[in-house]
């Protein structure tokens, strides 16, 4: 059987491998972590339907196991080209093609130091909130239920100051989802989402936004928070402009949540250099085109699936992974 390397064992990698196997190709997954699943393992409920992340992960993981797909865990890929993969250990594996499914990196909120993440108590990222929901444990002010929560959109997205000009796409709907979850958990809390634009691109997203406003009474304020400061009692004061009234706005909050964006992996540059691949301005890998060849790289035999090329939702990633596998099969046949 023809052997194809799948770099990354997140949902993109697993779905690619499963589809390759359906097409009679032998995939081999290289995963850096000790476990398959990638970032999705950290998420609690998925937008817009509040589906448990396990509902996506388990079937994929089980099928990978059932199909006896070769998985190399805790294995870092140092370099690759269209016919081989070299591991950090120095081992070289010869393959017929490579699918890059290495995903993205979560923006480090400490870089935006005006928001005081890692400095002030009660400043969290959206990733922390997911973990709190997973663990069922909420760190909050003086052990009491929060009365006011602010959620800030576009932290590390659409921001030239931190070299992240792109939109991370999924944070808006994540912000709406988390606002609803927090409201369900803390019904007395007033929740404010601060946004620059609300981008509800997927099916059911706009409806979720509407539900958040109407049924959960979430306040949406158009304006980017300029800074957070500590208050005497440990809460946080935030400042923004309420741009729809043209006035500055200030409030203290018990929880300040930063919706952190999707950043390109720093390894992308290395891979691009060693395998002659093109990078987009955002640092994500640049597909051959954005239409009929959106899962192909500029190099024959190297393919992409998932967020390695741009921020995407889970559904989009899974579709793309199947497409990438199909294009690999086509490539191997026509070669």
């Amino acid at each position: 059987m023809l052997k194809v390397a799948v770099i990354g064992g997140g949902i993109a990698g697993m779905q690619t491998a499963l589809r390759l196997r359906e097409l009679g190709i032998e995939p081999i997954i290289f995963e850096r972590d000790k476990e398959l699943g990638g970032k999705v393992r950290n998420w609690h409920l998925l937008f817009p339907t509040f589906t448990e992340s396990e509902a996506v992960l388990l079937p994929l993981k089980n099928r990978v196991a059932r199909e006896k797909i070769e998985v190399r865990l805790a294995t870092e890929v140092r370099e690759f080209d269209s016919t081989s993969v070299t591991l950090a250990s120095g081992e070289k594996i010869v393959v017929e093609a490579v699918v890059v499914c290495t995903g993205f990196t979560i923006f480090d909120a400490r870089v935006k130091d005006e928001y005081g993440y890692g400095i002030y108590d009660n400043v969290y990222t959206s990733v922390d909130i997911e973990r709190m929901f997973v663990d069922g444990k909420f760190a909050h002010w003086r052990g009491e239920e929060p009365e006011r929560i602010a959620i800030l959109h576009c932290v590390g997205s659409r921001d030239e100051k931190v070299c992240q000009r792109h939109c991370s796409k999924v944070c808006c709907v994540t912000g709406v989802k988390q606002a609803i979850e927090l409201k369900r958990r803390f019904p007395k809390a007033d929740i404010f989402n601060f946004y620059m634009d609300i981008r509800m691109f997927g099916p059911g997203y706009e409806e979720l936004y509407h539900t958040a406003q109407r049924e959960y009474g979430i306040h949406f304020v158009r304006g980017r928070i300029s800074e957070a400061s500590p208050l005497m009692d440990g809460r946080v004061q935030i400042k923004a402009e309420d741009t729809l009234t043209g006035r500055p706005l200030r409030m203290s909050v018990d929880m300040f949540i930063l919706l952190v964006g999707m950043r390109s992996n720093s390894e992308n540059e290395h891979f691009a250099r060693t395998a002659d691949l093109r990078l987009a301005d955002s640092g994500f890998m640049q597909p051959k085109d954005l239409f009929v060849n959106n899962v192909c790289s500029n190099e024959e035999g190297i393919f992409y699936a998932g967020t390695v090329t741009a921020p995407k939702s889970i559904g989009e990633v899974l579709n793309e992974a199947s497409m990438a596998a199909d294009r690999v099969a086509e490539y191997l046949k026509e070669r």
Binding site: R148, D190, H210, Q213, R214, E215, G217, I218, H219, D242, T245, R247, P248, L249, R250, M251, S252
Partner: peptide, 24 residues
């Protein structure tokens, strides 16, 4: 500045409760 801490939101809460669609 609109100071949410100092403003009395009682009337605002009543208004939104009676016509929640305004939040939309």
């Amino acid at each position: 500045v609109i100071d949410i801490d100092r403003n009395n939101l009682r009337k605002s809460v009543e208004i939104i409760r009676e016509l929640p669609e305004l939040q939309a």
